[in-house]
């Protein structure tokens, strides 16, 4: 039996009169890729923000390895081992790529301001190790040689990967990816998909993913959760989700399910 990394229990987030997330239950086992999909405004990013501590949910629990974490500040949650990326890239654009990664490592470093002034051996060692590891991560995400460029000067795809490298520097147990392939062409998307897979397989990181690109979602997910108007309408393996009527209706409107069946029949007939 694999351990559960993150579990939400009847999680609700209310903005004024709008229930953005409505008692959502989700369980993600270790070393798996779980995706959250749903139409625009379904509450996916709000759900993410509740897990990563940006929002405090009104009701329900977020359990990280069985311990409730909701209500903690984001820096505490990050230090526990939950890293995230953002829908719109949010790098520290005035700093170099490698500095961005070292900042991601911040919770794992101990150097204080006094040590920084004194440059004692322990501090110097730690700094050098940090640079070394950051260079490794840079290579891991395929940006070797670009470390001294300012983050804002990197191409779009590189910025996305740099954001992931920054998240990885924290040695996370759980990685939250918010639309990692947004705005990428098909080649870049394929690269990113393979990269996310390698995060799970090589580094053993559990991944929770928001994604609109169905090819990516169906290709890499171990489990898919579908949200619509803040509620969970389906959960299961990619195959099950593809066949789920409510999901199809949520995306394409009522009556679409029948249409799609007809279309599928026709397609299989053609084949």
């Amino acid at each position: 039996m694999t351990e559960t990394v993150i579990q939400t229990h009847k999680l609700s987030k209310i903005f004024g009169g709008l229930t953005a997330v409505d008692s959502v239950d989700l369980t993600v086992p270790e070393r798996s890729i779980a995706s959250i999909i749903g139409p625009n405004g379904a509450g996916k990013t709000t759900f993410f923000n509740c897990v990563s501590g940006f929002y405090t949910p009104e009701e329900g629990d977020v359990l990280f390895y069985g311990k409730p974490i909701q209500g903690n500040a984001t820096d505490k949650i990050c230090a526990m081992g939950i890293s995230r990326t953002y829908q719109n890239i949010r790098l520290f654009s005035q700093m170099t790529a490698i500095e961005n990664i070292i900042i991601g490592k911040h919770p794992r470093l101990k150097g204080t301001w006094l040590e920084a002034i004194l440059h004692n051996p322990r501090y110097m060692n730690e700094e050098e190790e940090a640079v070394k590891e950051a260079l490794h991560l840079l290579e891991f995400v395929g940006l070797e040689g670009l470390g001294d460029h300012l983050a804002r000067n990197l191409p779009y795809g590189a910025q996305r990967r740099l954001e992931i490298a920054r998240a990885l520097a924290n040695h996370p147990k759980l990685l939250l990816l918010d639309e990692p392939t947004a705005g990428m062409n098909s080649q870049e998307t394929a690269d990113m998909t393979a990269f996310i897979k390698s995060l799970r397989d090589d580094l053993g990181i559990t991944i929770l993913l928001i994604e609109h690109d169905m090819k990516v979602v169906m290709g890499i997910s171990d489990q898919i959760t579908v949200l619509d108007y803040g509620t969970k309408i389906a959960e299961g393996k990619p195959k099950e989700i593809q066949a789920n009527q409510r999901v199809i209706e949520a995306y394409l409107g009522p009556g679409a399910a029948a249409l799609s069946k007809k279309f599928q029949r026709k397609r299989s007939h053609d084949a």
Binding site: S52, G53, F54, A73, T74, D75, C78, A79, R84, Y86, R90, F92, S93, Q94, M95, E99, I102, I103, G104, H106, P107, L109, G111, T112, W113, E115, A116, E127, R166, N170
Partner: peptide, 24 residues
């Protein structure tokens, strides 16, 4: 130093800096 990097991160984007584990 680590402290200086944390300061720069805060000045660039405080929300993200905190979510990256910096006690702002």
């Amino acid at each position: 130093s680590r402290t200086g990097r944390a300061w720069l991160a805060i000045s660039a984007d405080q929300t993200v800096a905190q979510a990256t584990g910096i006690n702002t």
